[in-house]
Design a protein around this nucleic acid. Structure first.
Lengths: 148, 148
DNA sequence: CTTTTTGCAAAGCGTTTGCATTGAA
DNA sequence: TTCAATGCAAACGCTTTGCAAAAAG
């Protein structure tokens, strides 16, 4: 684990600083998939003077080099849906469009027993990512249709 | 559709204003699951003087009364994950913890043919929501473990 | 020694709030 | 005529940026 960290840093020309080591440890050891403010509070125990932007920059770096991932259901902007029945979504990574997918167009999901014993599942969503038909036939897509 | 809107407004003591009608139309008719700024740009065509906070307030109201939904993968804060292998997540709605779920603990998803013909699926994530074992045995959970 | 990283402060930007005015019922 | 909604401006909170000092390699 420590080796993995050093390797990633070396490979990506990142200097290994005590702050980075500590932030990495916190993310790895946390069972809660911490938010930034949680990481910040935690690092401060060891480095009371650390500034919050160091945490921001460090986590961004970690995501960039792939040693840490962002939990999937975060996007920069809220988006709205007038179709209020329960359904899934397909996200096109090229044009940023989101397509509604009715339940029956995706195979039914069967949750296994172990899982059902430990969690009460109220709802689930399948989020598919890929490229829509239109974008597959285009060379490139430069325009951002969302207007930002 | 128009009737649905009037009914929802009446039931929830919302006044039917031209701005609200227009915003609702935009969300309903958009195929793109618009972001706020896209809605804003769109309403401005009809109401050049509309202020952005009206759009904010209106969309919030709509979500509140349930006539519009927020696309699921939006959360207020980024959260981080040191487990970089591909896996699913279970979100506890009580304690806000996110649990890692290996692929094999959830039944395999079979995508049907229609779907595969129209979309190139690069990845999919199953996001389960519910209540974890610990929270099921508790009466209430007042503490927010994420630190915000 | 050179180059990156840190901490600080200020700026940026999406979102929310207070308030007087306007408009729906 | 009453009470909610709008538009405006200011405030708010999370995130980013510029820069000099400090630390890593």
């Amino acid at each position: 684990m420590k080796k993995k960290f050093y390797d990633f840093c070396k490979k990506n020309n990142l200097k290994v600083t005590p702050q980075r080591i500590e932030i990495y440890k916190i993310v790895i050891n946390s069972k809660e998939h911490p938010s930034l403010s949680m990481v910040y509070k935690s690092v401060k125990k060891k480095f009371p003077n650390i500034s919050i932007d160091t945490v921001y920059r460090t986590l961004r770096k970690f995501v960039e080099i792939g040693i840490v991932k962002e939990v999937e259901n975060y996007e920069d902007f809220r988006r709205y849906d007038g179709f209020t029945e329960n359904h899934h979504h397909f996200h096109c990574i090229k044009c940023y469009k989101i397509f509604d997918i009715p339940y029956n167009e995706v195979g039914k999901l069967s949750i296994n027993d172990f899982f059902n014993k430990n969690f009460e599942i109220l709802d689930y969503k399948i989020i598919l990512k890929g490229i829509c038909k239109k974008c597959k036939s285009k060379k490139e897509n430069t325009k951002n249709p969302l207007g930002f």
